[in-house]
Amino acid sequence: MLDNHAKLVKVIASSAGIVGRKKLQKIIYIMKKLGYPFEEKYTFHFYGPYSEELSLRMEELTNLGFVSEVKEKKSNYYQYRYQVTEQGEDFLTHSPVKIPEVDEIVSNMKERSSRFLELVATMLYFDDLSKEEVEAKVQEVKKKSNYTIEDMQEAWRFIHELKH
């Protein structure tokens, strides 16, 4: 029951919470692209790969009380902090769902900015293209984000690190 929900709770539990809806969106997408068994459907949006299904599932988890969502005010915007509740921990102990170890990869991504993860997710979205084509496509679809050559080099390094 609720296997896909349980996988998300596990990711959030593994890293003592995740701050930022965008960050969560990109973390799950990157993990999915790396072969982790997430089933949320992603499509390309203005800000890169985005899953409405994931957004709705997170709302379900907060409405059920498995995950707490705290809205925090930043200088000119709000962001959301997600943490697993006691009930969420209890739910995990009853769930038969199996997912490979996620602690290291999630904490690795958590330290990065959501802007950087957006770049990595976008590059992975175009992984059927060559490296040069990916870079050209990123500049084309994310013109306003002004990613530099250095940003992309760092993203390639990060992808390599995640894969190995």
């Binding site: 609720l2 965008k22 203005f46 599932r57 959501s114």
Partner: peptide, 22 residues
């Protein structure tokens, strides 16, 4: 079988915080 609202491919209007969706 437990069926959840997120199991269907339809969505509401979302104002789009944190640059999620335009």
């Amino acid at each position: 079988v437990v069926d959840s609202s997120s199991d269907l491919p339809y969505d509401f209007y979302r104002p789009g915080e944190e640059e999620e969706r335009l």
